[in-house]
Simulated scan of single mutants.
Amino acid sequence: MKLKAGLYIGIAMVFIIGGSLLAVKGKDAVSQAESRKQGILEAEQTTLFYQKSPGAIKEAGASAGDSVKEGEILFKVKLADEGDVEVLAPYDGLVDRVNVEKGDQVQAGVPLAVVQKNTYYTDLYIQESEIQQLEVNQSIDVHFPYSDQPTQVKGIVTSISSAPQFATLRMSREKGQADLSMFLVRISMDSNTDLLPGMTAEVKLDEITD
């Protein structure tokens, strides 16, 4: 009887210890998952609108996919009355789309091209309880876990909303109902040949030590 009792106690202890370890690991997994904040990689773009007197495209100096420098001549327009007008690149970047070609008639308000900046950004929603971990101009690692070769780049926190953007309703049987405030955080990073707009960007708050 004593042997059986000891055996039963030993089995019970194994289950208790094993269950405790699983619970601890489970909590760690949940904590890690909650620390991961994901957003979509975006590229800032500007549509160039023609702003001068009516005329015709005399020269189109850029095509879709071309890299351009700030101040570079993208178009020359011959005015209907006399003289030419130059349309310049607003910043270093990439020509995403060209809407006109040589000979096209243009007037004020006509979109000429779309130019994409050489910087990317992602917007994340961070809980009120976690927002104190971040500050403007802070350097932070940004992961791209679903790319063919998982990539990590350095990003900079460029803005944090001064007020909650929205509140989601959290329901708990133990604590009742409470509003969960979320803050909009923008993280910018340099463009990279391994990155494409539309990719999933991820920040792990548990990596932040300062």
Rank of each mutant, 00 (worst) to 15 (best):
V157S: 05
T158L: 00
D92T: 10
F49I: 11
T46G: 01
R36T: 05
G19S: 07
K58A: 08
I73Y: 02
E207S: 09
H143S: 07
I208W: 06
G198P: 11
T168M: 12
L48R: 11
S63M: 09
V68C: 01
T168P: 01
V30L: 13
Q149P: 00
S172R: 07
T200W: 01
D84S: 13
V100W: 12
V68N: 03
Y125V: 03
L184H: 15
A12D: 01
N99M: 13
G176K: 13
S63W: 04
I140E: 04
H143D: 05
R36F: 00
S181Q: 15
A108I: 04
E128H: 07
S188Q: 12
D81L: 11
D96S: 15
R36K: 15
V77L: 10
Q116H: 03
I187V: 15
F144Y: 15
A43N: 11
E59I: 03
K58T: 04
L112M: 12
L48C: 06
I73C: 03
M13Q: 07
L94S: 06
K117C: 00
L3P: 00
Q149S: 06
V85A: 15
N118W: 00
E202C: 08
L112C: 09
S172A: 09
R170A: 14
A62W: 04
V110W: 05
Q133A: 09
L196F: 04
L22M: 13
D190P: 00
K117G: 01
P197H: 08
T168A: 05
E34W: 11
V87W: 08
K154N: 08
T151R: 09
Q51L: 12
V85C: 01
I17Y: 08
A108M: 08
L134F: 03
D66W: 03
P164E: 08
S31I: 12
E135A: 09
A23T: 12
F166I: 06
L169S: 13
I156T: 15
G18N: 06
V136H: 05
G19V: 08
A62H: 07
A33H: 10
V87T: 10
Y146R: 10
K37T: 03
S161P: 10
G83C: 10
D148I: 06
P145Y: 04
I57F: 05
S20G: 07
D96M: 11
G65W: 10
E202N: 05
L205I: 07
K27Q: 06
Q45T: 14
S147R: 14
E86A: 12
Q149G: 00
K37M: 02
P90Q: 09
L88P: 04
E59A: 07
A89D: 06
K4H: 05
K27Y: 10
E207G: 01
V95E: 03
D148T: 12
M171I: 15
L88D: 02
S159G: 08
E101F: 08
